[in-house]
Every structure is written in C-alpha cells, then in structure tokens.
Design a protein around this nucleic acid. Structure first.
Length: 802
RNA sequence: GCCGCCGUGGCGGAAUUGGCAGACGCGCAGGACUUAGAAUCCUGUCCGCGAGGGUGCAGGUUCAACCCCUGUCGGCGGCACCA
C-alpha cells in the first residue's frame, strides 16, 4: 500500500529542502515585515530527543511556516545550550574530552530535528560551547564588570562536596543536589556574583508591556519579591553600636518585644556580653555546619541564643533583648528583625520557646495561643491608637523620618546571581588574579579565552578542575605574576543572550550587528517550558536590559510573546521516566508512522499549552486522516477547476478557523476543522460532485504547517508545481461567505429546551419575537399561559418565561 | 504553609468565554464491499425504557452557569522561616 510508506517521501523532501536552502533566512533582507519565532534551545543530551521536544518545536514550526506563507520574513533558528554537567561527568568517567561528546550529541540532535521536518535554517545555528560564541559571552561579562554589576566577593554558597561544585538554588531539591541527590551545605566562598537586584525594579516594570501568560508574570513578580516597608535603627543599650531592621509592618513597632539577628550578622560579636559568649559561639557553630536539608527540615522548631545585649525600641524607649536565630536570614532584608510575637507566627513561636513578652498592638485577636495575623485597629501603640493599617504605617514612617531613626525602604527576595561553578565544561571567566591583589580583565583581543586541554577533569579538594591545568592557570601580566580565575560561568550565562546572536550568528567583530538586531529583535514568539521562568527568562531579560542601557541592543525586553508548551506524560498519565518504563521515543514513532503523523498527532493530543498523556491508540486515528488526505489527492480524479457551491461556506469557515487556531496554538481544533472539511469533500465525491482546484490547493496550504512532507509531495506531484509550497501565499477567506443563511434556534420554555425553530440568520430581536409568537408549535407548547418575559438573543437562543 | 494550574462520556479532548454540553478523533456496536480477513466506505454511540438527569462535591447569583461568586474535596507544578 503506497500511502502507508511515507519514509520515501520524507527522505526526498529533507534532501530537497537542504539542497535548495529552502529555509535559509537572508538576515540582511529588510524588505518585508519580520517575524522572529524561537524555541528555547535544548541541552544536547546523550539520550537524544524525547517526545516532549517535538511538541514545542512543531508548534513553533507551524507558526513559522504559516508566517512565511503570509509574506513575513521569518527568523526561525535552532541551536544548542551545550555547556553542562552531563558532558563533564561523562568526561570524568571516560577520560574523553567533553567537547567531542557534546559535538556528537549535537550532530545526533540535528539529524533527529531534520527528520521531523522542522524548518530551521541550519546554516545559521548557534552553540554556546563554541569559542566563537562564548567569546562574546565573556565579552558581555566584561561589560558587566566594567559597569560594576559583576563583583568578586565573599558570599555564602550552596556547596556540594560530592559534585565538587557550587550549586544554584534551582539546582537543589529538598536540600540535596538535583543531580545525584547529594547533600548540600552552606559555605562562604570568594567568587563572582552579578548583582541582578540592581535591575529588580526594571524587571518588574518591564513585565507590564509583555504579552506573557499572566501566571508567568505572577511567578516572576513573586520571585523578584518586592516588599515595601521601612528600615528602623535600634541602638544597643549601653554601647555606641546600633543595627537596622527591615520590616513591612513598622506600624507594629510598639509590639516589638525583642530583636533577632542572623547568626552571621557582623554586629553579633561586638554586642555579645562576656557571660553569653560561649552560648553564642556554640550556636553560631551549630548553624554553620547545618546543611541546607537540616535547615528546611527543622523549620517548625525555633532555636536561638541570647546575646546578653538589649536594644532600645525607638517608639517607647523600652529595653528589649537581642537574640540570634537562624530563622533570620542574612540574605534577606538587613539580616536583622524586630520581633512582634503578637502578630507574627514565627516570632510568636520563638517568644513562647524563650518566654518573651507578647504585647498585642492590633485589636481583634486573642494572642494567648497563637499569633493574630489579621488586620485590626491599633491598640497599645501611643500615637497610632485607633488607626487602621495604612494610616498607621504612613504615620509611623513620618515619625521615624522625623526622629531620624528610620525611613521608608524596599526589599527584594531576588538574590545576587552567583556567576561561578567549580566545573570544567563552562565558559572560562576572562579574569586574572594578580599576586599584588589586583584583579584584571583580559583585553578584548585576548578573547575568547579558551579552555585548556586536560588529562583529568575531576575537581580535587575544594578546587575547581581548572586548577589542575597549571600551565594555563599561571600567567604573568606586565611582569607581575598571577593566576587565572579557575571557576567557569554557570549554564545560564550562554543562554542569556543567544537570541541576540541568531540575528547575526557569524559576526566576528561584534556579538551582533546593531542594525540587524534593530530589525529582528525582539523575539515575536518564544516557546519553552515553564521550568525556565525564574532562571533563564529572568537572566535573559536582565542581560538585554543591561545591554540596552549600554546602547548595544535596541530593545529592553527580548521576548514580546511567551508561550509554554505543556508536558507530555506517559500513557499511564504519569511523568515519563526510565524507571516507570513509560518513555516514548520519537524515533520509533517516525520509523513506524512517519514524521507527519508524529507532528500531527502531537498537535491533535490537545492544546499545546496543556499537560496531556500520550496515547498510542490515537496515533492510528491521525494516521487514518493523513491516509485519507493522501487518497483524496492521489487516488481520486475529482480535482477540477469547476467551482462547487456546496463547499464554499465550509471552505471559508475552515480557512478562517485554521488561521486563528494556529496562532493561538490550538492546533487540535484546527485539525478537527480540517477533518470536517475533508469529510465534507468525501461526501461530495460520493454524490458525484467535484473537489474544486482552488479548495484543493487551499487545503494543502492549510495542512502544510502541520504535515509539511506529504503536502509538499501533493503540491508537486498531484498539483503539478515545480517549487516548494513553503512560500506560496496563505489562503484567504471571505467573511461574508463564512456565515450561515439561517440559524436553528433552540426554543426554551422556562429555560428548558422544548423545540427548534429555524429562522433567517439576519433576523433581529423584533423579527425573531414576531416569528416566535406566530409559530404554531411554540403556541401549542405555551398553551394559553401568560408570557411573562421573552428573551431573544440573535444567533444564540430563545427563552420564553411563562 | 504560601503561590500558580487543572478536575467534562469507556478514552484524548470540544463548547463562539454567561446562551442547544459532549464538536473532532479513538474505542465500541451494526451494516456495505469481500470466499474470508486486512484496508476502505456508510450508520449509531453521555446516562436513563421513560418523564428526566448530567461538566469532582455543596451552596449562591442569573431567564440562562463547564464558564462568575462562596465553601469543600482531589490531582499536578513551583517556592519554602522573605520579616
């Protein structure tokens, strides 16, 4: 059966597209409106593609193909986020270079992607581990250094002994490393950080103008975590020392009955009284050795130690004790809090444990057994008594500023971006630490700083693997001896600007030409998983904003419209995983059914945005539909130029719906509409009618974005065209031919459907009312009851209340 | 604990966003073609014999609720002492 063997057709068109450079984008051609549609580039893992990849890639491919046909200049590139831990682990295990392994995987991925008929321009691809690419990653890092945003500082980090590296927060799950599940501890280390918090407000404001899913905006806002409050200074009684706390509820200051400092707070040693010294030291030690896991596990039970010092509550002059506790974090606010146990659950727990006074300052609760965290008018609060929350906050801020012991302040959850990994397989930082204590950046013409060849990729002790490359590490700058920085950049470095590089991927003198970016940026449609919301998507926005400020990029925001494809679950409704044995390999599906079937099936499963289970049985249904299309064109001779009025309306409706649904990535309903149309064509044929050439060509064009192989084959073989269908003009519809002439109204009596009534579609309310009243069937149903109300909605329904 | 998403036939999913619930497909049943099967082509298919009842459950708003509101149960994802 010829129509079940699509592999010949698919092979033919892959070669054709390659040879003809069908999908090559001339980046310098500004003659048409542009459309930049981008997938988040993959990490080229050794396992190859899984079925989740083709879902997102087919979705964007549909948009790219449609936009080309609609006359846009389309940039639809693909590349590889190719630095990363798996290649390094492979290198450690086998002693081979991670690059060779990575390049092999990239080749494999590329072949798999080509096999799927994705219309990427493979001559303009990008790979983050390519020195000609990471040269510019290093260059951008330099710009960040020069702007004072990248700094070499002592910071607490998540250290994983087993992996021998620092991990980002999102690489830790339940206090263990995401990879391998090894324990992670906190440790102070001197390393490179980038202060993304300087851009926190910009990143917050920028969200407003973006066409992103609202939940994704919410997630970024929460991650940035801006809180507006006040900083309040507390003097330490009997000393010249003081510390500052951050609070969002300065109005509860009268209820602050003690203060708590983070154990790492710099003032702790200065204020601790001799009598408390041992206790404080012991507690600090205990905290330092606590792993991330222990900290999270113990979050119910409060611990702490008394410094022996007292602070003065500026509102009422009361002497209140100062404690240290690890429930106060150095990394947020000022690392010190005023505790208001009456109205904060954590403070309440701590106060109960250490027997500290609890004074309610908000009316309405009972603070005997738990903190009262609702709102209430102020009590026990001097000049704030009787005020509500906002009034009291405003008044207190005024009072603090007047008395010079505090001021309005903002705090963010967003932390500095730790820009260093103790790994080999990443971009080297272009920095030399000189013996004289100076740190120097490499000159532009010394970039890229490439990775040295090594025999041993494993880290030893707490050192980065690059420490082993002594020839590379030890350098002399103007007679001064120095050592290269041996940590490398995190994975998210290279992926924070790759979308810019696609505008000009081969440029050797600048990361991307400004005019090219001016034309192509921003990305019009960006598709990728939700898991990158707070990492990659935030860092990319930050870098683009930064480069915009430097005048190097023409737009602040890189991704105008964002779309998340949903996850594809296994057939049992659970996440696909090797251990559950429910992994579907796309290669197998392509081999057994063909790429068109895989593409269409993945689109027909449900809306691209939804999480949905795989269902092999349903593939058969899609295959049948494609077979049906094949037979319609190849085995029937009903395609003639003559018009066929019977199909006119449905054809126009189909063109309209398919275009709309593709853009919204509700491809499933677009496909079902085309099934309806094909069914109607078959019906015409069975009645001896023809399939008009215009509609036959239109349908092939509508189908092409989803099933490019078979439609190219039909376009050339059956419809006799010499060139690719890819740039043929998109079918147009006539709105006036989409509507029905008549509408079948459901007639409800007391909101229950009783009968149907067919009326002309252009009838207004008045005409419908008259027709209803005149209708005998309706009259019989009403009997002779009184009509209390008559609700008529044209093209919807009729409801008669009696 | 907090934030976000989702609950519709035997299954994947539709429903013009407040207007005939179940489009389209799978599966199933019946028929045609066939010596027979496969493939293909028709027809039927939410439950109930029926009046009716149905969108996780219980309420509410409305002439009208899968859709909006309140509460509740269940599943998924993210964050986690953020002052």
């Amino acid at each position: 059966m010829p129509y079940t063997d699509y592999s010949r057709i698919e092979k033919k068109w892959i070669e054709f597209w390659d040879k003809q450079k069908t999908f090559h984008t001339d980046l310098h051609d500004f003659s048409k409106p542009k459309y930049y549609v981008l997938d988040m580039f993959p990490y080229p893992s050794g396992a190859g593609l899984h079925v989740g990849h083709p879902e997102g890639y087919t979705a964007t491919d549909i948009i790219a193909r449609m936009k080309r046909m609609q006359g846009y200049n389309v940039l639809h590139p693909m590349g590889f986020d190719s630095f990363g831990l798996p290649a390094e682990q492979y290198a450690i295990k086998t002693g081979n270079h991670p690059e060779a392994f990575t390049l092999k995987n990239i080749e494999n991925f590329t072949n798999q992607l080509k096999m799927l008929g994705l219309s990427y321009d493979w001559s303009q691809t990008v790979s983050t581990c390519d020195p000609s690419y990471y040269k510019w990653t290093q260059w951008i890092f330099k710009q960040l250094c020069e702007a004072g945003l990248a700094r070499y500082v002592e910071t607490p980090v998540n250290w994983c002994e087993e992996l021998g590296t620092v991990l980002a927060n999102d690489e830790i799950i339940d206090g263990k490393s995401e990879r391998g599940g090894y324990p992670v501890v906190r440790k102070n280390m001197k390393q490179w950080v980038i202060d993304i918090t300087k851009y926190a407000d910009r990143l917050l404001e920028g969200l407003d103008e973006l066409d992103w899913p609202e939940p994704s905006k919410v997630a970024q806002r929460n991650w940035i975590g801006k809180s507006v409050g006040a900083k309040i200074d507390f003097k330490v009684d009997g000393t010249d020392e003081s510390f500052t706390v951050f609070t969002t509820r300065c109005d509860t200051l009268f209820g602050a009955t003690y203060c708590v400092l983070a154990p790492e707070h710099s003032i702790v040693d200065k204020i601790t009284t001799p009598a408390q010294k041992n206790e404080i030291e012991a507690y600090k030690k205990a905290c330092a050795s606590k792993s991330e896991l222990e900290r999270t596990e113990l979050n119910k039970d409060k611990t702490g130690a008394f410094t022996g010092a007292y602070a003065i509550n500026p509102a009422n002059g009361n002497k209140i004790p100062v404690y240290i506790s690890d429930y106060v974090l150095t990394s947020y606010g000022t690392g010190a809090i005023m505790a208001v146990p009456a109205h904060d659950t954590r403070d309440f727990d701590f106060a109960k444990k250490f027997n500290l006074p609890i004074i309610p300052v908000l009316a309405g609760g009972n603070v005997e057994n738990e903190a009262y965290t609702e709102d209430g008018l102020h009590i026990n609060s001097g000049f704030l008594d009787g005020l509500n929350k906002q009034e009291a906050i405003d008044k207190m801020i005024g009072w603090l500023e007047q008395n010079k012991c505090g001021k309005k302040a903002v705090s963010y959850k967003l932390r500095e971006w730790i820009f260093a990994r103790q790994r080999y397989w990443g971009e080297p930082l272009p920095v030399i630490h000189l013996e004289n204590g100076e740190d120097v950046l490499l000159a532009d013409d010394e970039l890229p700083l490439t990775l040295p060849e090594m025999d041993d990729y494993k880290a030893h002790g707490g050192n980065a693997p690059l420490e082993n490359a002594t020839d590379w590490v030890n350098v002399t700058v103007n007679g001064v001896k120095g050592k290269r920085e041996t940590t490398t950049m995190p994975g998210s470095a290279g992926s924070s600007w790759y979308f810019l590089r696609y505008c000009d991927p081969h440029n050797g003198s600048v990361f991307a030409d400004y005019d090219l970016m001016k034309y192509w940026m921003p990305v019009d449609f960006y598709c990728g998983g939700k898991e990158h919301l707070v990492g990659h998507l935030l860092y990319s926005r930050f870098w683009t904003n930064f480069l915009f400020d430097k005048g190097l990029v023409p737009c602040k925001e890189p991704f105008k419209k964002l779309f998340h494809q949903g996850m594809v679950l296994g057939e049992n409704g659970e996440k696909m995983s090797k251990s559950l044995g429910n992994v579907i390999n796309p290669d197998d599906i392509v081999r057994d059914y063909g790429a068109d079937v895989l593409r269409m099936y993945e689109m027909f499963m449900g809306p691209v945005a939804d999480t949905k289970p795989w269902n092999t049985a349903n593939i058969e249904g899609v295959k049948k539909f494609i077979d049906r299309i094949y037979r319609l064109y190849f085995e029937s001779d009903v395609i003639t130029p003559a018009p066929n009025k019977n199909l006119e309306k449905l054809y126009n409706q189909t063109v309209k719906k398919v275009g709309e649904d593709y853009m919204a990535l509700k491809v499933n309903t677009a496909i079902s509409q085309m099934m309806i149309f094909v069914n109607a064509v078959y019906k015409e044929i069975s009645e001896g009618k023809n399939f008009p050439l215009e509609y036959a060509e239109g349908l092939v064009k509508l189908l092409n974005p989803v099933i490019p192989f078979i439609t190219e084959e039909i376009w050339s073989t059956v419809l006799g065209h010499n060139d690719t269908i890819a740039y043929e003009s998109w079918p147009v519809f006539d709105e006036s031919k989409c509507g029905e002439d008549s509408f079948e109204y459901a007639v409800q009596i007391n909101s229950k459907i009783k009968c149907k009534l067919s009326l002309p579609a252009d009838y207004g309310v008045k005409e419908i009312e008259e027709a209803v009243k005149a209708n005998a069937e309706v009259a019989a149903l009403i009997n002779d009851k009184q009509i209390k109300k008559l609700i008529v909605v044209p093209k919807r329904l009729i409801n008669i209340i009696i």
